[in-house]
Computed example of a mutant assay.
Amino acid sequence: MASFLDIFKRNFSLFSSDIGIDLGTATVLVYVKGKGIVLNEPSVVAVNKVTGKLVAVGTEAQETLGRTPDNIIAIRPLREGVISDYEMTELMIKEFIRKVQGFRLFKPNVVICVPSIITEVEERAVIDAGTQAGAKRVFLIEEPVAAAIGAGLDISRPNGNLVADIGGGTTDIAVISLGGIVESTSIKIAGDKFDEAIIKYVRRKHNALIGERTAEQVKKTIGCVYPRTEEEIMEVKGRCLMTGLPRTFTLSSSEILEALEEVSSAIVEAIHSVLERTPPELTGDISSNGIVMTGGGSLIWGFDKLVASKTGIPTRVADEAVSCVAYGTGNCLENLASMQDGTINLSRKRQMR
C-alpha cells in the first residue's frame, strides 16, 4: 500500500516538468518532458454565460456541442490556427496544464506551436495566454518545423525537405533546410473546411442539414480526395430542409470526393506555389526525399496519392501523423536552454526580422 509520502510526491511535486503544447484549432495535444504525450483532447470549452464559470473542457465540452441549454455555451476558442477568444483560450490552457501537472510550487516552461505565417500581435496573444495560464516562460515554434522533427526528418543538414501539415484550421507548408524554413506558406484551408464542404454538399444535393460532428464522421469514414478502388457508402442522419423532420439518407465515397475537390485542390495548389519559389538545388533534394504529410487532414483517404499525381514527387503520410507536431514540440523541450525567451528561432526568416 502506497504511503502518504509517496502519494504526496506523485500528486504534489514541488517541481514542474516542461510542457509542449500543440495548440490546434480542432485538437490540443500536450507533451510532458520525460513522459511523452499525456493529453489529447478537442479544443472546445463549455462556459456558463450567467456566472462566467468553466463548465467543461476538452472531450466533455465537445459532447455538449449543439446540445447545451441557453445558459451554457460551448465554443472553440481557436479559429483558423489563431486565438479568436483570448479569455476562453487562457482558461482552456490553464485547465489542460492543471490536468497534466496537478499542484506544482514552481511553474513550468511551455513550448507552443503556431502557424508558420503569424503576425506579431497573434504571437503576443499566444505568449500572453500561456503566461496567464500558469507558464513560467512561453516559447513558440513554427508548426511545420515541429512536424518535420516529429516525423523523424533530419532538418539540421543542408538538404531540402518539404512538409505539409494539414491541421484543423490551417495548412502549413514549408521547405526546411539547415534547421530553418527556406520557403513556406500558411493557408486557412484545412480540416474544418473539409467539414464545411460536406455540409454544403449535403444541403445542396440532398436538401438536408447535418451538423459539424456528423460531417467529421463522414469525412473520417468514407471521405476521400482521390478515387477509391471500391465504392464506400454510409448511412447519415440529418434534418430535412423541406419538412423540418429527421431524415436518414445514404452518402457514397464518390459524392464526398466531389464535395472535397475544391478544398483539396486549394491545398495542392499551395504546395505547388511553395515548390515554384524553392531554389533549384532544394527542389532536387525534395524530388529525391519526397513530400511528407502530417496532421489529421492528411489522413483523408488518397491525399498522398493526389499530391503525388499532381506534383510528380513521391509523397507519404508520416507515421502517427496527428501527433507529429506534439512529438516535435517535445523534442524541442530538450533544448530550451539554447533558445531565446519568447520564441524558438529555427526559421532564418524570423531571425532576420
Rank of each mutant, 00 (worst) to 15 (best):
Ile256Lys: 03
Ser264Thr: 07
Ile256Thr: 04
Glu281Val: 14
Met242Asp: 08
Leu260His: 09
Glu212Lys: 11
Glu196Met: 11
Gly295Arg: 10
Phe249Gly: 00
Ser287Val: 14
Gly296Glu: 15
Cys224Ala: 10
His272Arg: 14
His272Val: 13
Glu196Gly: 10
Ala259Leu: 05
Glu261Phe: 10
Glu212Ser: 09
Ala259Ile: 04
Val268Trp: 07
Arg277Ser: 12
Lys219His: 02
Arg213Leu: 12
Asn289Thr: 11
Ala208Val: 06
Val202Met: 07
Glu232Leu: 07
Val202Glu: 03
Asp192Met: 08
Ile233Phe: 05
Glu232Arg: 05
Gly244Val: 00
Thr278Met: 13
Gly290Tyr: 13
Gly211His: 04
Val202Thr: 07
Ile198Lys: 05
Gly295Glu: 11
Ser273Ala: 15
Leu275Gln: 11
Glu232Val: 00
Gly290Ala: 12
Ala197Thr: 04
Arg203Met: 08
Thr229Gln: 09
Leu282Cys: 12
Ser253Ala: 04
Lys200Phe: 05
Ser264Asn: 08
Val236His: 00
Glu196Pro: 04
His272Tyr: 10
Ala270Leu: 11
Ile271Ala: 09
Pro246Val: 00
Arg228Thr: 04
Leu209Asp: 09
Lys219Gly: 00
Ala215Lys: 01
Gly223Gln: 01
Val236Ser: 00
Ala197Lys: 05
Ser287Thr: 15
Leu257Asn: 07
Ile210Pro: 02
Leu241Ser: 01
Glu276Thr: 13
Phe249Lys: 00
Ser253Arg: 02
Ala197Tyr: 05
Glu281Pro: 08
Thr248Ile: 05
Glu269Asp: 14
Thr283Pro: 04
Ile256Asn: 02
Ala259Tyr: 04
Val263Glu: 13
Lys193Ile: 05
Ala259Val: 04
Gly223Thr: 01
Ile286Asn: 12
Gly284Asn: 15
Lys219Trp: 00
Thr221Trp: 02
Thr248Trp: 01
Phe194Glu: 03
Gly238Asn: 00
Leu257Ile: 05
Ser252Asn: 06
Glu258Gln: 13
Ile233Lys: 10
Asp285Arg: 10
Ile267Lys: 08
Lys220Glu: 08
Arg204Glu: 14
Glu255Trp: 03
Lys220Ala: 06
Ser253Gln: 02
Ser287Arg: 15
Glu235Phe: 01
Arg239Val: 10
Ala259Arg: 06
Leu245Pro: 00
Asp285Trp: 13
Tyr201Pro: 07
Ile256Trp: 02
Cys224Glu: 03
Val274Pro: 13
Lys205Ser: 09
Gly296Asn: 15
Leu251Tyr: 01
Cys224Met: 06
Pro227Asn: 01
Ala197Asn: 05
